[in-house]
């Protein structure tokens, strides 16, 4: 956070993303881990670097003291930690999250779908509409980016007047 060079910031973010991918592997989420490594550490870093090439990579020193944000963050964090007291413990097989539809997916998907990777079976079949909606989101984002960046030579005379 104190680094002023934004290239270094983006590179640190990429390393952080790769580390979190390793953490996902430890927590048995291999599919999520390689998506995070490819998308989070790969594509997102490339996007940030592309943006930096266009906007320059130096941050000016901030003028105001960040005391109010610090208080806000500490209060929010404290409230959240208090909230975790009611959460189920980590790694317990009896947690409620494991006993609604997850059992059904684990038992029935080999018969109903017939592929061994359950995450793929759920993603592409049980929640296929969800994945289609995700594709729509990506399409919308691509259209938005193109619209934003394609309007570059807009009204040059007004910009000269202001300058």
């Amino acid at each position: 956070m104190r680094i002023r060079n934004l290239f270094a910031v983006v590179m640190m973010a990429g390393i952080y993303s790769l580390l979190s991918a390793g953490l996902f592997t430890i927590m048995d989420a291999v599919d999520v881990a390689f998506t995070e490594a490819a998308v989070g550490a790969g594509i997102s870093t490339v996007l940030f670097l592309g943006a930096l090439a266009l906007v320059g990579h130096h941050e000016r020193k901030p003028g105001h003291t960040p005391l109010l944000p610090l208080i806000v963050v500490l209060v929010t964090g404290g409230a959240l930690v208090y909230g975790t007291m009611d959460m189920p413990p980590y790694g317990d097989p009896g947690n409620p999250v494991h006993h609604h539809v997850a059992d059904h997916y684990l038992e029935e998907s080999p018969h109903e779908i017939g592929i061994p990777n359950i995450v793929t079976a759920v993603l592409a079949s049980y929640r296929g509409y969800d994945t289609m909606g995700e594709t729509t989101v990506v399409f919308t984002a691509a259209v938005a980016v193109m619209l934003l960046l394609a309007r570059r030579p807009r009204r040059p005379e007004e910009e000269e007047d202001e300058a």
């Binding site: 048995d28 989420a29 291999v30 790694g91 317990d92 097989p93 494991h98 990777n117």
Partner: peptide, 11 residues
Amino acid sequence: GKIRGGTAPIL
């Protein structure tokens, strides 16, 4: 989603 002693959900 992690269960202690569990493995990745690939049959």
